Simulated assay, not measured.
Amino acid sequence: MKITKPIRHIVTGFALASALGTVAAADTWRYAFEEAIDEVQGVFAQKFKEEVEKNSDHTVQLFPYGTLGESADTMEQAQAGILQFVDQSPGFTGSLIPEAQVFFVPYLLPQDTDALARFFRNSEAINEMFPELYAEQGLELLTMFPEGEVVMTTKEPVTGPDDLDEVKFRVMTNPLLVESYKAFGATPTPLPWGEVYGGLQTNIIQGQENPMFFVESTKMYEVTDHITFTGHNNFTTAVMANKDFYDGLSEEDQQMIQDAIDVAFDHIIEYQEGLTEEALDAILEAKPEMNVTRLTEEQRQPFMDAAESVEQQFLDMTGDSGAEILEQMKEDLAEATSD
């Protein structure tokens, strides 16, 4: 049958659109993260995007928190290849990769920011051991980086574990974090992030933890009255690629991605200098009556004592593989803190 001119135009147009669609899908990479575009993960993602687009013909489309659902949704999309890149805390991948929960062993990571940066940059556990575990879940681990000291925000003052008795404390859906707050004396309550502000407002929960910049940007101080620096952790996050996607790239593109990751890592470490103090100043300006407590070494000791049982629970959960990672991390941390 002869194709008339109008139909031929339609067919040709459809073929062209399909071809263009294929090209666009190949060249546009989708990257989702757990924070707003102007928060730490967003700043990292923007720098990564800038470097990729400066050094290749590819473009990177960014999806801040909430645009593609909750953290569980974006992880599923990354594993399915709908997303090429995802930034997600081990707090949410702990059930998927139990060994990643090591980052929630209290008082394991140093508070010194320079030592912390050296650890994340050079750690054998992070750069050689964890990639194998992520690969088993269809993910290429590109980097991990710290986001700042975690603080507790609560409705009542906290100077020791006794003050957390019967306090419903929001935690990420992470088994070891649940155990940590049990050890700290609280009633851990896993909740998706989108429900936390309302939960505090209605007293369903009475506390939560996050880095200071996130407490400020999400206005957690509006629904709590006390900020407590316990020194128990530094928030960690991981940037991953869908492994099938990554393995299918040319060596040139893989190197370009790693170079972009390295530049973004250095950028985010520099960006965070003074960020905690700036966020705290902004909170106190917005709410001068906010109470800020930095626990003394003596006040921290009961929390540190409780952390010993949490470390043992991590080992019970993860067996030999967890023990090997924890041992290597302690060696890496010793090297990072001795420089």
Rank of each mutant, 00 (worst) to 15 (best):
S71L: 14
A32R: 09
D247K: 10
N210T: 10
Q77E: 01
M220Q: 03
M152P: 00
S89C: 02
D163A: 07
A286S: 12
D259Q: 10
E53Q: 03
D339T: 14
P288G: 06
D162Q: 13
S250D: 04
T93H: 00
P302M: 03
A286V: 01
T4A: 12
S56H: 05
V167F: 05
I325Y: 08
V11M: 12
R300E: 12
D316W: 00
K182Y: 07
Y181E: 03
L96A: 01
L164R: 07
T154A: 07
T187E: 14
T4M: 13
P6V: 12
F235H: 12
F214H: 08
F44S: 02
I3K: 00
Y65H: 09
Y271V: 08
L249K: 11
T228D: 00
M75A: 11
T93V: 02
S180G: 05
E216I: 09
W29L: 13
K47G: 11
R121P: 10
R300D: 07
L191P: 05
N174K: 05
E298W: 07
L109R: 04
L275W: 01
Y134T: 01
I205Q: 08
Q61V: 11
L295E: 02
D87V: 06
P302I: 02
E335K: 12
I205T: 10
S217H: 09
Q258K: 13
D262W: 02
P175Y: 05
E277N: 11
E327M: 09
F120D: 00
E132A: 14
F229H: 14
Q206N: 13
E209Q: 12
P188L: 05
Q254M: 09
D165I: 08
N291S: 15
P288Q: 04
E99D: 03
A279N: 00
V43M: 06
A336V: 06
E331H: 07
E132R: 01
A36S: 15
R118S: 11
F169N: 08
A25K: 13
F184H: 13
I126W: 04
E252V: 10
S18W: 08
F44N: 05
G81R: 04
F103T: 04
G91W: 01
Q255F: 08
I227T: 08
K219M: 14
F314M: 01
L284T: 03
Q111N: 14
